[in-house]
Design a protein around this nucleic acid. Sequence first.
DNA 1: TACTGTCTGTATGATACCTTACATAACGGC
DNA 2: GCCGTTATGTAAGGTATCATACAGACAGTA
Lengths: 230, 230
Amino acid sequence: MMNLLLSQLSQGDFKRLEPYLKVTSFKQHSVLFEAEQEIKHVYFPTGAVVSLVVTLASGETVEAAMVGADGVVGASAALDGRISLSRGIVQLAGDIIICSIDGLKSTALQSPKLLSLLIRHEQTVYAQAQQSAACLAAHHVQARLCRWLLRARDLSGSDTLLFTQEYLAEMLAVQRTSVTIVAHTLQSAGLIKYARGKIQILDADGLQDGACECYSTVKRHYERLLGPAT
Amino acid sequence: MMNLLLSQLSQGDFKRLEPYLKVTSFKQHSVLFEAEQEIKHVYFPTGAVVSLVVTLASGETVEAAMVGADGVVGASAALDGRISLSRGIVQLAGDIIICSIDGLKSTALQSPKLLSLLIRHEQTVYAQAQQSAACLAAHHVQARLCRWLLRARDLSGSDTLLFTQEYLAEMLAVQRTSVTIVAHTLQSAGLIKYARGKIQILDADGLQDGACECYSTVKRHYERLLGPAT
DNA sequence: TACTGTCTGTATGATACCTTACATAACGGC
DNA sequence: GCCGTTATGTAAGGTATCATACAGACAGTA
């Protein structure tokens, strides 16, 4: 599987970027970078799914955005600033194409097409963050969980997701017991099936009915800016 | 008063941009653009303060970021995409320097300095959005109000702010009655004084003690990327 | 088989905030 | 000064979620 941004590059651009690329496998829960640290690499997931999370002084973490093979992590900071704004963690294990920030920046400044892709992609991530803000303020845990599962499914391309309720709780910024309750509800409704860290999505359409609008809003923004993600 | 981004441009860059600039006054609550619309202009506030808000299907609005003379609104979309991701509203009346998106884009592609400023600024807005997400998820109304008032004070440069509780409630994504209660508490504590849409900040340090970490986190991100805003 | 750690279920009281409703108070126009 | 409008205060019941605690179920290991 390839990364959707890289696959949109011209052959020439890709050749120019290629010397700086290196594929690496990451395990679930790996931390790619911490917030407010100098970053040295840019991450183009191919199989892995990465989340950008804010960490608060209390230790609590809140997810702002999720990126998979449809995007890139750290590109904006690579172009300028060079400091991460959030923590980047691997939600779902898989491969990531790592690129040096200097390689990306020099290539982007020579390739309007690449620069354009990065600028538009950055907007899709921004759109996710602002939608997360609205979602956390206005929507209930159950709708948020449905949204989250659908998003993880889209990015992983699989109906089986390896997440414990504990972990979901952290991502949704709620208590673990709250996740237990709504997960139970969703299972009773026949939408999902889960056991000990393994969640199967049985009825994606049903999940979408239960999800808040944020799922489709984020998708719409993405498709407008970068085309269908298939 | 000048815009902080524009004032960092070289004389040559500014001269190139100048033909596309036009100062306009905006009243409070003006809508600069709606979400998901084609944008034609970029906004450099000088006296005005602008908020970027997400509107949900329910009609509820949630603020993701606030920009004043320290920044620019719509620049990222101007560089590419050309579609707004959120609604832009004027929080506090004042002047805004309007620039055509074509003018900004062509100038930015010729001026690495301007492009760099825009890219770094975009990150400060992203940082606000993700912090808003965390804040809405984890922090109480009182701390959020303190944060919000301090931010509005910084951007307006004034200790007197013209906001009704109704309006504050919308920005904080809570009920008006909740604002009344915490505003009353803050007034009793001698931190603010308010009456019929006019809020005076009496003790900014006290407010900062009551505010959540998000206020200083956002400020720190900004200063790292663009220097002290003074 | 027993043991241990992890994951999930459930219960219970607390609480921040919602929702709705209505009362009071200030301002602006006439 | 009167009156409609807007802004703020307050009350009372409801609810989603928190916080904490503990119990049961499953998987891996010895």
